[in-house]
Structure formats: C-alpha cells, structure tokens
Design a protein around this nucleic acid. Structure first.
Lengths: 138, 138
DNA sequence: TCATTAATGCACTTCCATTGCATTTGTTTT
DNA sequence: AAAACAAATGCAATGGAAGTGCATTAATGA
C-alpha cells in the first residue's frame, strides 16, 4: 500500500501540502467533483491553484475529466482499471438527476460502437442519466 | 411536403420572419450549430432572440440540444426518427477533432447499456470523437 | 548557501448562458 | 377598425466558469 506521497512521486508530481489535501479530498469523495466543490471544501484555497493542481493531476494520469452534460466540468480519480492516459477512457459515467451527483461506473465498459464508413472513432464519451442507487432506495 | 410555415404552425409555434430564417439556416446546415454560428450568419440578429427562438424550438420538439464535450452547447433539427421530446434521444453524435463539427448519426442507435443494480437509467448521451468522413478523405 | 525551477495567489479577462425590462409586433375581441 | 391582450424582439446587464499574466513564495539541486 503506497502512501499518497509515494504515489505522487511515482507520477513525477511534486508533493506539496495543497496537493496532498486535494488528493485526499478526491479519495474521500466517491463521486466526481467540480472545481467549486473543491474550492468550497477548503476555505483558504485559491481557485487558480486548484485549477492548476487538477490540470497537473490530469496530465500525469491520476485524474480524469468528466463531461456529464451539466455544463460544469467534473473530475474524478482514475482507478486501477482506468487507462485514460494511455488509451481511451472506456468506462461510463452515471449522472443522477435527483442528487445531481456523477459517479464513474468503472466496471461497466462501453460496448463497441459502430460508426459509418469514413468515420474514424478515437474516443467515446458516454453518460447515462437517471436515478442512482442511493436515490432509488434499493 | 409541408411548408416551413405549416410545420411551425403544426407545432404551435408562431411564424415570424426571424423564426423562418433560423429554421432555414438549420435545414441548410447538416451539422449541429452553436448559438454563435447562427448569430454570425445573420448580421442583424440579436443573440437573445436567437437564444429564445432555439429554446422555443427545443420545447416544441423540433430541435434538440447536443453536448459534444467542447463546452459549447450545440443544436440540431430533429429528424423523422428523432423522438427526443417523447422518449429518450437515442441516436449518437459524432464530433470531429479535425474540423470541429458535430453531426447527428441518426441511423445509429445507441445499444442497450447495462447499469448496476439500484441504478435506473432514464437517458443516454453518447458522443464519439474522431475524424469525420469529410476529413478522413474517404 | 546560492541559483534554478516549480507552485502559489491575486487580479484580470473572456466567453457563453441567462434574465429583466421596455418596446414592438401580432392576434383576438368587441 | 379600434382596443385590449399576449407574445416576440432588442438592449442592457448579470452570473458562472474557464483560462491567463505576473509577481511572490516555496522547494530542489548544485
């Protein structure tokens, strides 16, 4: 079990207090978060720092960006099965219309999508909307 | 073959000069367009009018909104097969990373997506990114 | 320790979506 | 046809989020 410090270092990310806090925050939340979510979690934080920290995490492949259709970019930690930095990010995301939270359904891979002749698919973004397990009550 | 006037009236949309122009513009473009695209097409237009016209079209079910991940909302005419006002909008969208255009692949229905127990799927948004037929050269 | 490089914080800009309100246009009623 | 009403339009302004420039601070390496 790696410490967070070791994890960051293994990805060539300098360890700073802010980065540790942000990483821990992402671990604790099991849902995708917006920049504002992080901002509100730390009163003393500066939006720019958060923004750039998340971008760094993204570039280094420990966070991926999610466009769930709400118009606000969300972010979530990449999990073991997530290879979004290497190939396409092939898991799907679920957005709850009730609690407004978005989760990664890492275990659910996106089926092969056929596109017409002449089209070359490089990447797929799939968001399912509906009611999540917590809100549906079972 | 209905005239545009008849079409609008059949959907309970008042016919105005601006609305006819916007509708014709959408027909001519075979790709999804942004508000700014429409704005630039008509020098004398006001952004608000376009915005509200598109919203009206959307409510009445002749236009649907597309979130292709570029961060800018796009719109396209609903076609015969498009039942987005009644049920889910089940066709997929293709965004070209080269020419930056987004098209509706109306003929390509989204396969059934399984979600974990407890989750209730109501709607699916699927955007494939890559190179479109025009840009791939065949 | 000093020099270098990266991270942070503040201020600011830009872009798009959206709303309020006054005006104009179109429709309906008498 | 005129008056009354409702909807469409245009202008101005707001709000939210993304992104950038620059000076300052902190961390690393020689």
């Amino acid at each position: 079990m790696k410490t967070i410090e070791e994890l960051l270092e293994s990805k060539n990310i300098r360890v700073t207090a802010m980065r540790l806090l942000i990483y821990k925050f992402l671990v604790e939340k099991d849902v995708a978060v917006t920049l504002s979510d992080i901002e509100n979690a730390f009163e003393k934080s500066d939006r720019t720092t958060l923004y750039r920290t998340i971008k760094t995490f993204e570039e280094k492949g420990i966070v991926h960006q999610i466009d769930d259709g709400t118009g606000i970019t969300k972010y979530a930690l990449c999990e073991k099965g997530c290879n979004c930095e290497i190939e396409n990010d092939l898991h799907l995301h679920f957005h709850c219309n009730n609690c407004n939270e978005t989760v990664c359904l890492t275990a659910h891979k996106i089926p092969q999508i056929k596109v017409p002749d002449g089209f070359v698919a490089e990447n797929v973004n799939l968001v399912v909307k509906g009611i999540c397990d917590k809100c549906s009550g079972h």
